[in-house]
Amino acid sequence: MTPLELLGHAQHLLDESSGATVGNSARLAAMMGRQALEQYVRARCAELNVDYDGRSMRTRLLILRSLDDVDNADRLASLWSQLSACCHQHAYELSPTVTEVRALCEGVIDSIAPRVTLSTPSPKTPA
């Protein structure tokens, strides 16, 4: 699943929370948004021929900052940090709201969409 597809599922989850996701849709969508961002960062590091295996996400984001677009890397680092905070539940904190997570997921879309192509497989033609 591509990062944009993951973000689409996160947006759908925020729009249509019902059944087992009621009350948890924002946190689940935040996890999907963070996963999409992490997939994009791994793919971008691979495009830049960077050995990222065994590196933390913070390190990968720093690599992007030094080898790629600084502003976009900073924006991704901020979004990753905020989404990570939404994913972790603490008894002394309120859960993230749907509106907050929607804004973060839209920020990820805005940051990666111009750089990602949503590849769709071409239909097979008979030989």
Rank of each mutant, 00 (worst) to 15 (best):
A29L: 13
A73E: 01
T97A: 07
L83D: 03
S18N: 07
P3A: 04
Q11T: 08
D71K: 04
Q39A: 05
M1G: 04
L61G: 01
Y52G: 01
S66R: 07
L64D: 03
R27L: 14
R34K: 09
A85M: 01
L37D: 00
V101S: 08
S111L: 05
S122L: 15
P121N: 11
G8L: 07
A46P: 01
G33K: 06
L6Q: 12
T99H: 06
D69W: 02
R55I: 00
G23P: 12
V98C: 01
L61C: 00
L61M: 11
T99N: 10
A91D: 10
A10W: 09
G54V: 13
T97H: 04
L83F: 01
R60N: 10
D69V: 03
Q39K: 09
E93W: 10
A26Q: 09
Y40E: 02
I63T: 11
A30P: 06
I112R: 07
V50C: 06
A30G: 06
T97Q: 13
E47F: 00
A36Y: 01
G19M: 11
A103R: 14
H12W: 05
R55W: 02
R44A: 12
D110F: 01
T59S: 14
S18E: 15
S84N: 13
Q82N: 13
T120N: 03
S17M: 12
R42Q: 10
Y52W: 10
M32Y: 10
A113V: 09
G19E: 15
L7S: 03
S81P: 00
N24L: 15
I112L: 06
L118H: 11
R60Y: 00
H90Q: 07
L37G: 01
G54R: 15
A20G: 08
E106Y: 02
H12E: 14
A91Y: 08
E38M: 06
I63R: 02
M31S: 07
N49V: 04
L7W: 03
C87E: 15
P96W: 10
L37K: 07
S56P: 06
S95H: 13
Y40W: 15
Q35T: 11
C86F: 14
I109D: 04
A20F: 10
A10N: 08
E100N: 02
T59Q: 10
C45V: 02
L79R: 06
L118P: 00
T21N: 15
R58F: 01
S84K: 12
R102L: 05
S17H: 13
G107C: 07
Y92Q: 08
L76K: 06
L62F: 08
M1I: 03
L13Y: 00
A20M: 11
S119F: 06
S122E: 11
Q82C: 08
S81Q: 09
A85G: 10
A46G: 05
P121Q: 14
H9P: 00
A46V: 08
D15G: 10
Q35M: 13
S66T: 13
L94W: 13
R102S: 14
A127V: 04
L76W: 14
M57P: 12
T117I: 15
E16C: 15
E38V: 11
R44H: 04
L62K: 12
C105N: 12
V70Y: 09
